[in-house]
Design a protein around this nucleic acid. Structure first.
Lengths: 253, 253
DNA sequence: GGAATAGTGTCTCTCAGACACTATTGC
DNA sequence: GCAATAGTGTCTGAGAGACACTATTCC
């Protein structure tokens, strides 16, 4: 990292002296935001949370939730993401992963701008979408609707796609989608989640072997009863940690 | 992405009117830089390029090359990375990959700052380190020397580790390290590169099967002669594209 | 018993690891 | 021929896919 000017070269300043004279606002910096794709499963489909922009630019268009870094409130980058997530959904400890950073001269009409894209996975039950603080218009959009039904503001179609691609890639070799389920779940429910993201059926035995052998979940002792044989309920052993499998799920050949 | 103020709410401005009144400099934005780990292989070891900081803060310390986004010269984020790489090494088309973005209040004493970490892979032969434009002190550091021998400025030890971890992870399931070799290479040379990054021996037959079956390289028709049986020379089929293997290299069991 | 879903037994297939083997050069 | 490195044949083994099978519930 270099300074942009030759400040600091001036004679022999100590670092303390240098910092005293340094004014970050002297230099032009790009706009800096964090945007996020919050995924959940509803009605056996993957959905992402969208917010209708109430302000210029892109007023009236749907967009991924996000916003500027608050230099006072946020200690680190991920705090901005957590803060936005909390505002929209009321959740404060979801699975959160940084995906990619996009920056260019043109992506925002206000000028050179940079945004860090995150994705979050939350269990459908956890959300109380009505309770969002800002009373903005918010929607759970089925992912097939992007960009046809919901053509997103700025380059958010691209950000969304990057997040979605990451999620689809990871379903093949990690246990990550487990974060879309509530605390207790059955193996069939878990398999369903994987199938939804993967977009194809998985062979039941293979899937169960894979999950059980990985030792990432344990029986809770409870069962889920329905109109048939009750299913054992499981919970994750080490919350937050994803297991990496040595081979990809291939799906049907 | 939301605006930070209620500018834009003012009556019913059109977007054009809004943008005319908008001044990006009114708001406090974090410092924004790009830093990169440029990897190469020298003397059968992985090395990374370091620059000695000639300016405050962190003057006199080693750091990853990088710098501020130039809002005029750089059209997109990756241009900043490419520009810095060109300045230090004279190379303009290496393998370049975005790794992770770090931002916090404390990582730079000048204030809230964000940096996007990239890594680059270059063939040792390509570099003319002497020809770097800025006449800074530059070194190829063996990666074991970080952070003991080279304790990097800012949080660059962390950035470096993130880049190195990404590279080590990818050697297991992609053909990416091929970018560390010159145009023409033998299979033994390629295997050596993989072993250096992986940190362990790979079984020759498995490795060759994996690479040949993936169809990512082709014989050039030339051979490399030494004091023994000549080796066929290969070159990559689709430059820049990495192959993803369905299973990880495991190394010896 | 029948429908429905949970859960298992076991064979096949693919691809990585192991390791001994052969091939081709310089000396 | 010998050393050195290039390159191959082929067996084993882990873990995924296929698919038929059994188990347990509600009605």
């Amino acid at each position: 990292m270099n300074t942009k000017s030759d400040l600091g070269q001036k004679e022999q300043l100590t670092e303390k002296e240098f910092l005293k004279e340094y004014n970050a606002r002297e230099y032009e910096a790009p706009l800096m935001t964090v945007d996020m794709a919050i995924f959940t499963i509803r009605k056996d489909k993957l959905h992402v949370l969208l917010v209708k922009r109430a302000q210029h630019p892109g007023i009236g268009k749907w967009a991924l939730p996000g916003g500027f870094i608050d230099l006072v409130k946020d200690k680190q980058l991920v705090d901005t993401a957590r803060r936005k997530l909390k505002e929209k959904t009321g959740i404060d400890t979801p699975y959160l992963e940084q995906v990619e950073t996009f920056g260019s001269r043109r992506r925002d009409p206000r000028g050179w701008s940079v945004t860090v894209a995150y994705f979050a996975l939350i269990a459908s039950e956890d959300i109380d979408i009505a309770s969002n603080e800002t009373s903005e218009e918010i929607v759970w959009a089925a992912i097939e609707g992007i960009p046809k039904k919901y053509n997103l503001a700025f380059d958010h179609n691209v950000l969304f796609q990057a997040c979605y691609d990451r999620l689809k890639a990871k379903v093949q070799y990690t246990s990550l989608p487990i974060n879309l389920l509530p605390q207790e779940f059955t193996l069939s429910e878990l398999q369903k989640i994987f199938e939804i993201i993967l977009g194809s059926k998985i062979e039941k035995k293979s899937f169960r072997r894979r999950i059980i052998d990985a030792n990432i979940i344990g029986e809770t002792g409870n069962v889920k009863t329905g109109s048939n044989r009750p299913a054992k309920l499981y919970s994750v052993n080490a919350a937050g940690k994803s297991h990496y499998f040595p081979r990809n799920i291939e799906g049907p050949r």
